[in-house]
């Protein structure tokens, strides 16, 4: 994997969430229509239970991957990370739960963008194998 554009606390420039609710640790790529992110799952992650990273954590990781993607142009324009909210989740499937210590990767693809609502398709993998996928409608609150 190539070097990250943003890593760790650098992501705070792209997303409004702060610990313990930060569920994205790397942004590898961001274009106008897609992004590549990752999360290094620490054992003290608040969505870990019995050493497994649970379904709400997977969904939040996807939402924040989309938030980092949406925040990137704001960052480039020298603006603060916008607040974003999930409007709808569709077609979510979880295939297995990653373990603490794993690093999961997510590919975000924009499906459509209409009136401030972005519909994205996300695929999350662990070592190349599918972990979860979903579509998400996200509202970004612009100033």
């Amino acid at each position: 994997m190539s070097q990250a554009l943003f890593e760790g606390e650098q992501l705070y420039g792209l997303i409004p969430q702060r610990p313990p609710m930060v569920m994205v640790s790397h942004l590898f790529k961001a274009t106008e229509t897609e992004a590549e992110t990752a999360l290094q799952i620490k054992p003290d992650n608040c969505f870990c239970s019995d050493n497994l990273f649970t379904e709400p954590g997977l969904i939040e990781h996807i939402a924040q991957s989309a938030a980092a993607f949406a925040g990137y142009p704001h960052y480039l324009a020298g603006k603060k990370a916008p607040l974003g909210f999930i409007g709808e989740i569709r077609k979510f499937a979880a295939y297995r739960l990653p373990e603490a210590g794993n690093m999961i990767h997510t590919h975000i693809q924009v499906v459509s963008e209409i009136m401030g609502v972005t519909l994205i398709q996300a695929e999350t993998t662990l070592e190349g194998k599918p972990v979860a996928s979903c579509q998400m409608k996200i509202f970004i609150q612009n100033d």
Binding site: E88, R90, A93
Partner: peptide, 11 residues
């Protein structure tokens, strides 16, 4: 329970 699928969740 394991939440294996969400066909739709509206907030």
């Amino acid at each position: 329970l394991f939440l294996n699928a969400i066909s739709q969740c509206k907030f």
